Amino acid sequence: MLTYLKAQASSIMASATDFGVTIIAVNLFGLWYLAASIIGTISGGVFNFYVNRKWVFQSQSKDVKWQVFRYILVWLGNLAIVTSGVFILTHFFNLNYVIAKVVSSVLTGISYNYIMQRQFIFTS
Rank of each mutant, 00 (worst) to 15 (best):
N113K: 11
N94A: 12
N27W: 07
M1I: 01
Q117M: 13
N27Q: 13
F120V: 13
F87P: 00
K62Q: 12
A25H: 03
V74N: 09
I121K: 02
S84F: 07
T17N: 08
A14N: 00
R70L: 10
S61M: 04
W55I: 14
I24H: 02
V82D: 00
Q119R: 15
F47I: 08
N96V: 05
I115K: 09
I42Q: 10
G77L: 05
L95V: 05
W55N: 11
G85S: 02
V68I: 13
A25T: 04
A100M: 01
L79F: 05
T108E: 09
V68Q: 08
T22H: 08
A80D: 05
L28A: 13
G77Q: 08
K101M: 07
S59C: 01
L2M: 12
M13S: 12
I121M: 03
I110S: 07
G77T: 05
S124Y: 02
G45K: 07
V56P: 15
V102F: 09
T3M: 10
I12P: 01
K54M: 11
V46A: 06
V74K: 10
M116P: 00
S124D: 08
Y112R: 08
T3H: 03
N78T: 15
F87D: 01
V74Q: 12
I121F: 00
G77N: 03
F19Y: 04
F29A: 12
T17C: 13
A7T: 01
L73K: 15
V26T: 04
G45W: 01
G30H: 12
V64N: 10
K6F: 02
V26P: 02
V106L: 11
M13Y: 14
S105Q: 10
W55D: 13
K6N: 06
G45S: 04
G44Y: 01
Y50F: 14
Y50K: 12
F29E: 05
I81G: 07
H91L: 07
L28I: 13
I12G: 04
Y33F: 15
G20K: 05
T108A: 14
V46P: 00
I38M: 15
F69W: 09
R53N: 11
M13C: 08
K101N: 15
F87M: 02
L89N: 01
I38F: 15
G40R: 01
V51G: 02
T22W: 03
S37R: 14
I12T: 08
L31G: 14
V64D: 11
T90C: 06
I99H: 12
L107E: 05
F122G: 00
N52T: 09
T123C: 06
S124Q: 12
K6L: 12
G109Y: 06
Y50R: 11
T108I: 08
Q67G: 03
Q119N: 12
A80H: 09
M1P: 04
G85W: 01
T22E: 04
S111F: 10
A35I: 15
V26F: 07
M116K: 06
A100H: 01
Q8G: 07
A9D: 04
V98E: 13
L2P: 04
S84Q: 06
I42E: 11
F49K: 03
W55F: 10
V64K: 14
T22C: 06
G30R: 12
Y97E: 06
H91E: 11
N96P: 11
N78D: 09
N52G: 07
K54A: 11
M13A: 14
V51H: 05
I39S: 13
S10K: 01
I99R: 12
N48W: 03
